[in-house]
């Protein structure tokens, strides 16, 4: 879970960097997208880097999902449920200190997976093209985010990513043996997780919001 998750976090940071190029205008954004495809030529084939990244990411997603489902099933059995509930009491159902983020790891992860399917159909293959299809990455983006429902869907998904990373990023480093603090809130990796989740959520939401509310780039 930890290693595959961190691979995806690394990708998200690069992806976010690319998205933020939208603020430099249509030409810079489309050029960046084009360069991703010609990166490393002639040493790499056309779209070589892109396909390498796609294969690594797909592997990471599959490993992450497989590990999550295995853990989910194992833990459900281990928790000792009695008639669908673990404890019969109605008090303290949310535990002593656990965070909203930790409750939403599993279904939040499923939400994010479904979103990624929508996202690829929307902005990669452009099969879903509210506002009209286009070959220009910038126009794909622009046409989509002029619609409120698209903006809303991406906002929900990015908040889910933020919560997922808030728990997940800290958790990954603990799994890798890197937490040296007795309490979670004192941990360096907890602060790092908050930073990463806030930066990634805000960084991904900035271009869509700028397009919808301020008509970025006309």
């Amino acid at each position: 879970m930890a290693v595959s998750g961190l691979i995806m976090v690394g990708y998200l940071i690069l992806h976010m960097y690319g998205n933020l190029r939208a603020f430099e205008g249509p030409d810079a954004f489309d050029e960046y997208a084009h360069h991703l495809r010609t990166f490393g030529e002639p040493m790499l084939p056309h779209e070589g880097l892109l396909w390498f990244v796609r294969v690594v990411l797909l592997a990471a997603v599959l490993v992450h999902a497989y590990a999550a489902i295995t853990l989910w099933r194992r833990n459900k059995k281990a928790a000792g449920y009695v008639g669908g509930k673990r404890y019969q009491t109605k008090q303290n159902r949310t535990g002593i200190q656990r965070s909203y983020a930790s409750f939403t790891m599993r279904w939040g992860g499923v939400t994010i997976a479904l979103f990624i399917v929508f996202h690829i159909l929307n902005l990669t293959t452009n099969d879903i093209h509210p506002g009209g299809a286009s070959d220009s990455p910038y126009l794909k983006l622009h046409h989509s985010f002029e619609h409120f429902w698209v903006l809303a869907a991406y906002t929900v998904a990015m908040l889910a990513v933020g919560f997922h990373l808030w728990h997940g990023f800290w958790s990954a480093f603990t799994t890798l043996g890197q937490n040296y603090s007795a309490k979670r809130r004192d941990s360096f990796w907890n602060s790092a997780a908050i930073l990463v989740s806030v930066v990634i959520t805000a960084g991904f939401l900035a271009p869509p919001f700028a397009i919808y509310f301020f008509g970025l780039g006309g």
Binding site: L71, R74, N75, K77, A78, A79, G95, I96, Q97, R98, S102, M105, H167, W170, S171, T174, T175, G177, Q178, N179, Y180, S181, A182, K183, R184, S187
Partner: peptide, 25 residues
Amino acid sequence: GFGGCTNIGECTSACPKGIPLDTIA
């Protein structure tokens, strides 16, 4: 048949002896 740790931290909060969470790391 114990479950796998997902670093939630309820264990250390419930522990009467306050065994710290970094022992898991």
